[in-house]
Design a binder for these strands. Sequence first.
DNA 1: ATGAAAGCGCTAACAG
DNA 2: CTGTTAGCGCTTTCAT
Lengths: 354, 354
Amino acid sequence: MAQKEAQQRRPSIHDVASHAGVSAATVSKVLSGVTTVKPENAQRVLDAVELLGYRVDPLASDMRRAKRRIIGAIMPEFESEFFGQMVSELEGLAEQRGYTLVAASSRESEAREKEILARMHDWRVAGVVLAPVRNEHGPAAAFMKANGMTGVLIDRVLADDAFDTVSADSAAASAEVARALVGMGHRHVLVVGLGEQAATVRARLEGFRRTALELAPDIRIDVVLCESDVGPLRALLHDYFSKGTERPTAVYSLFLKGTLVALSEFRRRGWHCPNDISLVGFDDAEWMQVTWPAIAAVVQPVREIATNAMEVLFRRIEGEGGPPTARLEPCKVLMRESVGSPGSVPHSGGGDRQ
Amino acid sequence: MAQKEAQQRRPSIHDVASHAGVSAATVSKVLSGVTTVKPENAQRVLDAVELLGYRVDPLASDMRRAKRRIIGAIMPEFESEFFGQMVSELEGLAEQRGYTLVAASSRESEAREKEILARMHDWRVAGVVLAPVRNEHGPAAAFMKANGMTGVLIDRVLADDAFDTVSADSAAASAEVARALVGMGHRHVLVVGLGEQAATVRARLEGFRRTALELAPDIRIDVVLCESDVGPLRALLHDYFSKGTERPTAVYSLFLKGTLVALSEFRRRGWHCPNDISLVGFDDAEWMQVTWPAIAAVVQPVREIATNAMEVLFRRIEGEGGPPTARLEPCKVLMRESVGSPGSVPHSGGGDRQ
DNA sequence: ATGAAAGCGCTAACAG
DNA sequence: CTGTTAGCGCTTTCAT
């Protein structure tokens, strides 16, 4: 037999009503916690609900309401630990308030990002958490603005004049990385990154540069940056090291993919961290503490970002006014074995134990 | 001004109808591609749609239809590359057919899994792609069965008598790993894994054992397996190596987390792959080819699993009958530098180039 | 304290 | 070819 036929018609609110001998309106009241119902009737409703296994149809319910209890989340991708954790956190937070999270991935495309947003608008979502592909000036944010949608911008954004923003404090973290590297004696650092249009990537670069130059005015900072995909970056980095310029003593990657590309390039050349070159990357990942050497990384406060984003989003949904806020959450910097003093012997021991 | 007030009321189908001077029904027909509409009127409708920026409300539309154009996806977690890719693929596939994917994570909890499924049922999803926490015998699958839901089971499942299943051919991949390790001379292998209740983990273990014993009847296969979380596994593995039994020449991890735990344990003991011990893991990850040594891994055919799962799911949604099918997609085994012959010098060179 | 009535935005059956 | 009618399952006035 086809599964299709097994699809039972679920009991509706009217079924419950007739079983309880009341009207649908009363059932609705009981279920939404209105107290003006005679206790006896309320009980009969509850019994009928139990008996029939009735559950409200959230879509039908939202239909009649002003706002639908759906939150949209748009992430550049689902494949990385960072955005995976983010979706997971947002999901839990939305659930806590009785909302459903509908997540979609823009696949690093601004065109797709806008399309998804339009679809979310079609769904009449109550609010959107948008992690833009580039920054706050993309077509998606413009669309949200134009259509009066409520939303929060996270991650690749620092501040906006129309929406609240929440992201990691990239500049501060980069400054800390700079302090660490300069403190260890590095005077020639390569900064490598993807997405030069991303506000945060620029903040990461500038945060590093400013502090490094402050502490060591003679420091040499090379920069290999490209927009778009990881492929070109790989080529650029290869060229950089092939040019025969003096080899930097450390590489600071502003992006997870950059860290991978850097490692890959080191492999190809047979360089080992930290003897031949040091490496720190923005974005931590589980594997970074089990490899040898363990890779130093800036840990973004995913949970804090998610929590604050949802908090401010729900305040807006509930109609709170006021100018947009811009939050920056502090990162943690984990200096692991991939970083050492230039020209020194590697230090021994494991990565961070847990 | 509060963002809330900026929320414009979107044009409804009636707005379009009156602008075009036709009825709502006609608008609906034009938009759903019914050809029996006078071209002139159709054009006026299209113009009005354009003018007003009208878009169908998918929820309202689904309300009236028999089945809602929503596919539910339930994954054990969102944080890993594997499930991230899976959600991404499923999202694209659902979109292609005009469906929306609503993904949720069970967080490795069977209780939560069932709750989510109930919520999906409340949403009247047309179908569900379920990657069960353990196997096909969990409460979630039972719930689906009991409620006549349409669905496919993927990943941690081999076959089922009620639902179609699609997963990686774990046994074949494990056999290939066995052939490789035995072929290189390994005669003492530790197999380590999480989730002994998962059908696939058992298949991976047995696939390995059978082939290994066939090729080398004298081989010693130790097994460290535990249900539940990664913490206990770490402890078990530590105990295993501390017991002073002879050290195996290779470790085969049946699960990504197991690979991480194994690496972490090797670190702690100062063992290097492949000189001190070889390592192969089920599940590939991007980082595995950039570390030194690159980590050998079994690559699951995510895209194929997703594609076939969606294909069979939509066939069921469209009412196709017949007994449940069970598909197994072949994996690829990438023997990288973490594997070598026992007691030999490490081979030189990079990981897989791209 | 309760129910009848009126929709939310849309589609499907059926007359015309 | 088109419009009317009747809902999908629910919530919300508004009388009673």
